[in-house]
Protein backbone atom coordinates (compact mmCIF):
# COMPACT_ATOMS: atom_id res chain seq x y z
CA UNK A 1 0.00 0.00 0.00
CA UNK A 2 1.19 3.46 -0.77
CA UNK A 3 0.74 5.75 2.20
CA UNK A 4 -1.31 8.71 1.21
CA UNK A 5 1.51 11.04 2.09
CA UNK A 6 4.49 8.99 0.99
CA UNK A 7 5.46 11.43 -1.66
CA UNK A 8 8.08 13.93 -0.63
CA UNK A 9 7.69 15.93 -3.78
CA UNK A 10 7.52 19.65 -3.36
CA UNK A 11 3.83 20.51 -3.77
CA UNK A 12 2.75 22.71 -6.61
CA UNK A 13 3.96 26.22 -6.01
CA UNK A 14 0.43 27.51 -6.29
CA UNK A 15 -0.48 25.43 -3.25
CA UNK A 16 2.21 26.88 -1.02
CA UNK A 17 2.44 30.45 -2.21
CA UNK A 18 0.23 33.49 -2.25
CA UNK A 19 1.06 34.77 1.22
CA UNK A 20 4.00 37.02 0.39
CA UNK A 21 3.08 40.70 0.60
CA UNK A 22 2.87 42.37 -2.81
CA UNK A 23 5.30 45.00 -1.61
CA UNK A 24 7.95 44.47 1.01
CA UNK A 25 10.13 47.29 2.17
CA UNK A 26 13.86 47.13 1.85
CA UNK A 27 14.54 47.04 5.59
CA UNK A 28 12.24 44.08 6.13
CA UNK A 29 13.86 42.11 3.32
CA UNK A 30 17.34 42.80 4.60
CA UNK A 31 16.25 41.87 8.08
CA UNK A 32 14.78 38.56 6.85
CA UNK A 33 18.05 37.86 5.08
CA UNK A 34 20.12 38.84 8.11
CA UNK A 35 18.09 36.64 10.44
CA UNK A 36 18.47 33.59 8.21
CA UNK A 37 22.19 34.14 7.78
CA UNK A 38 22.68 34.56 11.52
CA UNK A 39 20.78 31.36 12.26
CA UNK A 40 22.63 29.45 9.53
CA UNK A 41 26.06 30.55 10.73
CA UNK A 42 25.18 29.86 14.33
CA UNK A 43 23.96 26.35 13.57
CA UNK A 44 26.98 25.59 11.40
CA UNK A 45 29.22 26.69 14.23
CA UNK A 46 27.25 24.57 16.69
CA UNK A 47 27.82 21.60 14.40
CA UNK A 48 31.55 22.33 14.19
CA UNK A 49 31.74 22.49 17.96
CA UNK A 50 30.05 19.08 18.19
CA UNK A 51 32.70 17.66 15.94
CA UNK A 52 35.29 19.13 18.28
CA UNK A 53 33.46 17.46 21.17
CA UNK A 54 32.94 20.81 22.84
CA UNK A 55 29.18 20.37 22.74
CA UNK A 56 28.10 17.33 24.71
CA UNK A 57 24.81 15.49 24.64
CA UNK A 58 22.55 15.88 21.66
CA UNK A 59 21.46 18.77 19.52
CA UNK A 60 18.93 19.31 16.77
CA UNK A 61 19.88 21.90 14.22
CA UNK A 62 17.65 24.09 12.05
CA UNK A 63 20.02 24.01 9.08
CA UNK A 64 17.83 24.36 6.00
CA UNK A 65 14.79 25.40 8.03
CA UNK A 66 15.89 28.93 8.96
CA UNK A 67 13.22 30.69 6.90
CA UNK A 68 10.41 29.64 9.25
CA UNK A 69 11.99 31.13 12.35
CA UNK A 70 13.07 34.22 10.38
CA UNK A 71 9.68 34.85 8.77
CA UNK A 72 7.74 34.45 11.98
CA UNK A 73 10.34 36.21 14.09
CA UNK A 74 10.12 39.19 11.78
CA UNK A 75 6.33 39.30 11.90
CA UNK A 76 5.88 38.87 15.64
CA UNK A 77 5.33 41.73 18.06
CA UNK A 78 8.16 42.06 20.57
CA UNK A 79 5.95 40.74 23.38
CA UNK A 80 4.35 37.85 21.49
CA UNK A 81 5.20 34.51 23.04
CA UNK A 82 7.29 31.82 21.37
CA UNK A 83 7.08 28.14 22.28
CA UNK A 84 9.37 25.80 20.43
CA UNK A 85 10.79 22.32 20.44
CA UNK A 86 14.11 20.65 21.17
CA UNK A 87 15.02 21.91 17.66
CA UNK A 88 14.82 25.41 19.07
CA UNK A 89 18.12 27.26 18.73
CA UNK A 90 16.79 29.27 15.78
CA UNK A 91 13.41 30.12 17.29
CA UNK A 92 15.03 31.30 20.52
CA UNK A 93 17.80 33.32 18.87
CA UNK A 94 15.42 35.00 16.44
CA UNK A 95 13.56 36.57 19.38
CA UNK A 96 16.73 38.33 20.45
CA UNK A 97 18.29 35.90 22.90
CA UNK A 98 22.02 36.39 23.23
CA UNK A 99 24.14 34.30 20.87
CA UNK A 100 26.80 34.03 23.52
CA UNK A 101 24.26 32.85 26.08
CA UNK A 102 22.89 30.20 23.73
CA UNK A 103 26.32 29.04 22.57
CA UNK A 104 27.58 28.90 26.15
CA UNK A 105 24.54 26.84 27.08
CA UNK A 106 25.40 24.33 24.35
CA UNK A 107 28.92 24.19 25.77
CA UNK A 108 27.62 23.69 29.31
CA UNK A 109 29.16 26.87 30.67
CA UNK A 110 28.07 29.06 33.55
CA UNK A 111 27.42 31.98 31.19
CA UNK A 112 24.89 29.82 29.35
CA UNK A 113 21.43 31.24 29.03
CA UNK A 114 20.20 28.59 31.50
CA UNK A 115 23.35 28.48 33.59
CA UNK A 116 24.11 25.08 32.11
CA UNK A 117 21.01 23.47 33.63
CA UNK A 118 18.90 23.11 30.53
CA UNK A 119 21.16 22.51 27.57
CA UNK A 120 20.40 22.53 23.87
CA UNK A 121 16.86 21.20 24.12
CA UNK A 122 15.48 23.68 26.68
CA UNK A 123 16.60 27.12 25.51
CA UNK A 124 14.47 29.85 27.07
CA UNK A 125 14.70 33.61 27.23
CA UNK A 126 11.73 34.98 29.11
CA UNK A 127 12.94 38.56 28.73
CA UNK A 128 12.50 38.06 24.98
CA UNK A 129 9.20 36.21 25.44
CA UNK A 130 10.83 32.98 24.24
CA UNK A 131 8.95 30.87 26.76
CA UNK A 132 10.87 27.68 26.41
CA UNK A 133 11.96 24.82 24.23
CA UNK A 134 10.16 21.60 24.99
CA UNK A 135 11.75 18.24 24.45
CA UNK A 136 8.75 15.94 24.75
CA UNK A 137 6.93 15.93 21.43
CA UNK A 138 3.67 17.86 21.57
CA UNK A 139 3.83 18.94 25.21
CA UNK A 140 4.23 22.61 24.42
CA UNK A 141 1.10 22.84 22.31
CA UNK A 142 -1.33 22.95 25.25
CA UNK A 143 1.18 25.09 27.15
CA UNK A 144 1.19 27.62 24.31
CA UNK A 145 -2.60 27.51 24.36
CA UNK A 146 -2.43 28.33 28.07
CA UNK A 147 -0.22 31.36 27.45
CA UNK A 148 -2.70 32.49 24.79
CA UNK A 149 -5.54 31.97 27.26
CA UNK A 150 -3.72 34.13 29.77
CA UNK A 151 -3.06 36.82 27.13
CA UNK A 152 -6.75 36.82 26.24
CA UNK A 153 -7.85 37.09 29.88
CA UNK A 154 -5.34 39.85 30.56
CA UNK A 155 -6.45 41.55 27.36
CA UNK A 156 -2.80 42.10 26.52
CA UNK A 157 -3.05 41.75 22.75
CA UNK A 158 -0.26 39.19 22.78
CA UNK A 159 -0.29 36.14 20.53
CA UNK A 160 1.43 32.84 21.30
CA UNK A 161 3.29 31.18 18.44
CA UNK A 162 4.01 27.49 18.79
CA UNK A 163 6.52 25.81 16.47
CA UNK A 164 6.59 22.03 16.14
CA UNK A 165 7.65 19.27 13.78
CA UNK A 166 5.59 17.05 11.51
CA UNK A 167 5.88 14.11 13.94
CA UNK A 168 3.91 16.09 16.52
CA UNK A 169 0.75 15.85 14.44
CA UNK A 170 0.21 12.24 15.49
CA UNK A 171 0.42 12.73 19.25
CA UNK A 172 -2.57 13.35 21.50
CA UNK A 173 -1.48 16.73 22.85
CA UNK A 174 -1.61 18.16 19.32
CA UNK A 175 -5.29 17.34 19.06
CA UNK A 176 -6.17 18.31 22.63
CA UNK A 177 -4.48 21.68 22.20
CA UNK A 178 -6.08 22.45 18.84
CA UNK A 179 -9.54 21.59 20.08
CA UNK A 180 -9.16 23.71 23.20
CA UNK A 181 -7.68 26.62 21.25
CA UNK A 182 -10.61 26.64 18.86
CA UNK A 183 -13.30 26.14 21.50
CA UNK A 184 -11.86 28.97 23.60
CA UNK A 185 -10.95 31.03 20.50
CA UNK A 186 -7.43 31.57 21.75
CA UNK A 187 -4.85 33.90 20.18
CA UNK A 188 -2.39 31.16 19.29
CA UNK A 189 -0.74 30.31 15.97
CA UNK A 190 0.47 26.74 15.63
CA UNK A 191 3.26 26.33 13.08
CA UNK A 192 4.18 22.90 11.82
CA UNK A 193 7.63 22.72 10.25
CA UNK A 194 7.11 19.72 8.03
CA UNK A 195 10.60 18.56 7.09
CA UNK A 196 9.13 15.31 5.77
CA UNK A 197 10.78 13.07 8.33
CA UNK A 198 9.95 12.45 11.97
CA UNK A 199 13.30 11.15 13.06
CA UNK A 200 14.27 8.49 10.51
CA UNK A 201 10.81 7.58 9.24
CA UNK A 202 9.03 9.58 6.53
CA UNK A 203 6.00 11.28 8.10
CA UNK A 204 3.92 10.25 5.08
CA UNK A 205 4.41 6.56 5.79
CA UNK A 206 2.80 6.74 9.23
CA UNK A 207 0.16 9.42 8.78
CA UNK A 208 -3.42 9.05 7.60
CA UNK A 209 -3.36 12.14 5.40
CA UNK A 210 -0.80 13.59 2.97
CA UNK A 211 -0.30 16.92 4.73
CA UNK A 212 0.02 16.01 8.38
CA UNK A 213 -1.02 19.39 9.80
CA UNK A 214 -2.89 21.14 6.98
CA UNK A 215 -5.13 18.15 6.31
CA UNK A 216 -6.11 18.03 9.99
CA UNK A 217 -7.17 21.67 10.09
CA UNK A 218 -10.68 21.00 8.88
CA UNK A 219 -11.28 18.65 11.82
CA UNK A 220 -11.01 21.73 14.02
CA UNK A 221 -12.88 24.07 11.73
CA UNK A 222 -9.67 25.81 10.74
CA UNK A 223 -8.50 27.01 7.36
CA UNK A 224 -6.13 24.70 5.49
CA UNK A 225 -2.81 26.54 5.31
CA UNK A 226 0.17 25.07 3.48
CA UNK A 227 3.08 27.41 2.90
CA UNK A 228 6.52 27.21 1.35
CA UNK A 229 8.73 26.81 4.39
CA UNK A 230 11.85 27.85 2.49
CA UNK A 231 10.58 31.23 1.35
CA UNK A 232 10.86 33.92 4.03
CA UNK A 233 8.61 36.36 2.14
CA UNK A 234 5.81 33.79 2.05
CA UNK A 235 6.35 32.96 5.72
CA UNK A 236 6.48 36.59 6.77
CA UNK A 237 3.25 37.27 4.92
CA UNK A 238 1.57 34.16 6.25
CA UNK A 239 2.68 34.92 9.81
CA UNK A 240 1.54 38.54 9.57
CA UNK A 241 -1.90 37.52 8.33
CA UNK A 242 -2.60 34.92 11.02
CA UNK A 243 -0.96 36.85 13.85
CA UNK A 244 -3.18 39.79 13.07
CA UNK A 245 -6.22 37.58 12.90
CA UNK A 246 -5.43 36.06 16.29
CA UNK A 247 -4.68 39.48 17.76
CA UNK A 248 -8.03 40.74 16.53
CA UNK A 249 -9.80 38.04 18.51
CA UNK A 250 -10.57 35.76 15.57
CA UNK A 251 -8.91 32.75 17.12
CA UNK A 252 -6.16 30.30 16.35
CA UNK A 253 -4.50 29.15 13.15
CA UNK A 254 -2.73 25.99 12.12
CA UNK A 255 -0.01 26.51 9.53
CA UNK A 256 2.04 23.85 7.79
CA UNK A 257 5.35 25.04 6.38
CA UNK A 258 7.07 22.64 4.00
CA UNK A 259 10.79 22.53 4.48
CA UNK A 260 13.74 20.15 4.69
CA UNK A 261 16.65 19.53 6.99
CA UNK A 262 20.08 19.98 5.51
CA UNK A 263 21.35 17.20 7.77
CA UNK A 264 20.10 14.48 10.09
CA UNK A 265 17.55 14.63 12.89
CA UNK A 266 20.17 15.14 15.56
CA UNK A 267 23.87 15.15 16.08
CA UNK A 268 24.08 11.36 15.89
CA UNK A 269 22.19 11.06 12.61
CA UNK A 270 23.89 11.44 9.21
CA UNK A 271 20.45 11.32 7.52
CA UNK A 272 21.37 8.49 5.13
CA UNK A 273 17.80 7.23 4.92
CA UNK A 274 16.76 9.99 2.55
CA UNK A 275 16.85 9.24 -1.20
CA UNK A 276 19.62 11.06 -3.05
CA UNK A 277 17.36 12.64 -5.63
CA UNK A 278 15.09 14.00 -2.93
CA UNK A 279 18.02 15.49 -1.05
CA UNK A 280 19.36 16.98 -4.25
CA UNK A 281 16.02 18.54 -5.12
CA UNK A 282 15.71 20.15 -1.72
CA UNK A 283 19.31 21.28 -1.50
CA UNK A 284 18.63 23.22 -4.68
CA UNK A 285 15.94 25.01 -2.69
CA UNK A 286 18.20 26.27 0.08
CA UNK A 287 16.27 29.16 1.62
CA UNK A 288 19.26 31.44 1.94
CA UNK A 289 20.61 30.82 -1.57
CA UNK A 290 17.17 31.39 -3.03
CA UNK A 291 16.57 34.54 -1.06
CA UNK A 292 19.97 35.98 -1.85
CA UNK A 293 19.24 35.36 -5.52
CA UNK A 294 15.91 37.12 -5.19
CA UNK A 295 17.41 40.11 -3.44
CA UNK A 296 20.07 40.45 -6.13
CA UNK A 297 17.38 40.28 -8.78
CA UNK A 298 15.49 42.99 -6.94
CA UNK A 299 18.52 45.21 -7.17
CA UNK A 300 20.13 44.77 -3.76
CA UNK A 301 23.88 44.98 -4.06
CA UNK A 302 26.09 41.98 -3.44
CA UNK A 303 28.44 44.02 -1.22
CA UNK A 304 25.58 44.96 1.07
CA UNK A 305 24.58 41.30 1.46
CA UNK A 306 28.21 40.28 1.91
CA UNK A 307 28.47 42.82 4.66
CA UNK A 308 25.56 41.19 6.45
CA UNK A 309 27.24 37.81 6.03
CA UNK A 310 30.53 39.00 7.46
CA UNK A 311 28.84 40.91 10.26
CA UNK A 312 26.95 37.84 11.38
CA UNK A 313 30.01 35.66 11.06
CA UNK A 314 31.85 38.07 13.33
CA UNK A 315 28.98 37.88 15.80
CA UNK A 316 29.10 34.08 15.79
CA UNK A 317 32.88 34.15 16.20
CA UNK A 318 32.54 36.50 19.13
CA UNK A 319 29.82 34.38 20.72
CA UNK A 320 31.92 31.27 20.24
CA UNK A 321 34.91 32.86 21.92
CA UNK A 322 32.84 34.23 24.80
CA UNK A 323 31.20 30.85 25.26
CA UNK A 324 34.54 29.06 25.26
CA UNK A 325 35.85 31.57 27.76
CA UNK A 326 32.98 30.76 30.11
CA UNK A 327 33.67 28.66 33.17
CA UNK A 328 32.05 25.37 34.02
CA UNK A 329 29.07 26.02 36.28
CA UNK A 330 29.72 25.88 40.00
CA UNK A 331 28.41 22.58 41.40
CA UNK A 332 26.61 24.68 43.98
CA UNK A 333 24.09 25.39 41.23
CA UNK A 334 22.87 21.78 41.30
CA UNK A 335 20.56 22.37 44.23
CA UNK A 336 19.21 25.74 43.17
CA UNK A 337 15.98 26.83 41.45
CA UNK A 338 13.92 23.73 42.12
CA UNK A 339 11.45 25.91 43.98
CA UNK A 340 10.55 29.58 43.82
CA UNK A 341 12.60 30.40 46.92
CA UNK A 342 15.64 29.61 44.77
CA UNK A 343 16.54 26.37 46.50
CA UNK A 344 15.44 22.76 46.72
CA UNK A 345 14.49 22.43 50.39
CA UNK A 346 11.83 19.75 50.62
CA UNK A 347 12.06 19.28 54.40
CA UNK A 348 12.82 21.22 57.52
Amino acid sequence: MTGAGETTEVPAQSEVTGYAPAELDRTTRLELYRKMVALRLFEQRAYDLFLQNLVKGTSHLSLGQEAVAAGFGQAMRADDYTFCTYRGHAHTLVRGASMTGVMAELLGRSNGILGGKGGSMHLTSVEHYAMGSYAIVGAHMPIAAGAAWSAMERDSGQVAVCFFGDGTTNIGAFHEALNLAVVWKLPVVFVCENNLYMEYTPIGSVTAVPSPAADRASAYGLERVLVDGNDPDELYGCASRFLERARDGDGPALIEALTYRKGGHSRADPGKYRPDDEVERWMARDPIDLYRGRLLELGFGAPELDEIDSGELAAVDRATQEAKDGQAPDVGAIETQVFADGGNAWRN
Binding site: P142, G146, S150, R154, G172, L180
Partner: peptide, 26 residues
Protein backbone atom coordinates in the same frame (compact mmCIF):
# COMPACT_ATOMS: atom_id res chain seq x y z
CA UNK B 1 -17.84 31.90 33.03
CA UNK B 2 -14.41 33.29 32.26
CA UNK B 3 -12.94 32.58 35.65
CA UNK B 4 -14.75 29.29 36.20
CA UNK B 5 -14.54 27.35 32.99
CA UNK B 6 -15.51 23.90 31.81
CA UNK B 7 -13.01 22.06 29.64
CA UNK B 8 -13.19 19.12 27.26
CA UNK B 9 -12.01 15.74 28.57
CA UNK B 10 -8.43 16.62 27.73
CA UNK B 11 -6.19 16.30 30.76
CA UNK B 12 -3.06 17.32 28.84
CA UNK B 13 -4.85 20.41 27.61
CA UNK B 14 -6.11 21.21 31.11
CA UNK B 15 -2.74 20.88 32.82
CA UNK B 16 -0.83 22.33 29.88
CA UNK B 17 -3.11 25.35 29.71
CA UNK B 18 -2.69 25.85 33.44
CA UNK B 19 1.08 25.78 32.99
CA UNK B 20 1.09 28.22 30.09
CA UNK B 21 -1.20 30.58 31.97
CA UNK B 22 0.82 30.34 35.17
CA UNK B 23 4.03 31.36 33.43
CA UNK B 24 2.34 34.42 31.92
CA UNK B 25 0.52 36.07 34.78
CA UNK B 26 -2.43 33.99 35.96
Amino acid sequence: PRRVRDTPISEEAITGAAMGAAMTGL
